[in-house]
Design a protein around this nucleic acid. Sequence first.
DNA 1: CTTGACCCTATAGTTACTACAGGGTGCATA
DNA 2: TATGCACCCTGTAGTAACTATAGGGTCAAG
Lengths: 132, 132
Amino acid sequence: MKIGALAKATGTKVETVRYYEKIGLLPLAARTTANYRDYGSDHLARLSFIRRARDLGFTLKALSELLTLSDDREQSCEAVDDIASRHLAKIDQKIDDLTTLRLELDRVISACQHGTVGDCKIIETLAPRPLS
Amino acid sequence: MKIGALAKATGTKVETVRYYEKIGLLPLAARTTANYRDYGSDHLARLSFIRRARDLGFTLKALSELLTLSDDREQSCEAVDDIASRHLAKIDQKIDDLTTLRLELDRVISACQHGTVGDCKIIETLAPRPLS
DNA sequence: CTTGACCCTATAGTTACTACAGGGTGCATA
DNA sequence: TATGCACCCTGTAGTAACTATAGGGTCAAG
């Protein structure tokens, strides 16, 4: 199948597919006489894997490691679990950070009196306190 | 004060200070005879504002808008509130997305039996389902 | 004078795409 | 056959917000 079909089948953009091939995440595709990329089921499987992992927020680096691991079916699952768990911890951290941030922002916005900038609580919070 | 002192005073990197000047977020600094940047309290105030807004997750674009607004103290606070509220909504969305993602990832990791890759639930979840 | 911290500009790299320019291919329709 | 449109190709550059590096200058203390 052509690149457009592969892209559509996996919910990926054509340009992104080419990008993944360029960075080595996807193996080079066979070509037609017109130099069009021609993909088979192996590529479909691999790109699907990539798409799912990206959707779960794995970085391309982590994803690449997962792919390498998944190619050796006798490999211990520990390494996979390690990557996934570290990723989960990062997401936890991000949620924590964002939640803290959200609280602060909400506090600032709630204090806004909707007057002028001169007495705006939001601006006031951002501006440095006058030296006393 | 020199760039290093300004950077330290605001918890910003020297390179980032130069970057902000380059993109126009910080006004051009006065220079010493040695061509070193020389900063006064105006720059300190402005960079502090930038740092705080960045810490609250505002994009440079939104931040730039806030700075423009804050320069006109008679301006209505509505625009400021608008920017901040839209930012808050984005953070809310991000938290939602990450929370959903976390749930899915946790589910997958919990299903891991710690065997081999061949029967790894994590890999299995990422791999496309066999055609049936 | 030497040394080390700091300063400068210019350029490129990071991450993961995304957009665009310019040109080729294939198929359906008039 | 000609045309039009969707799709394909490579190469390059842009996005956001920094960050790192190369190569060179300045300043102050020893």
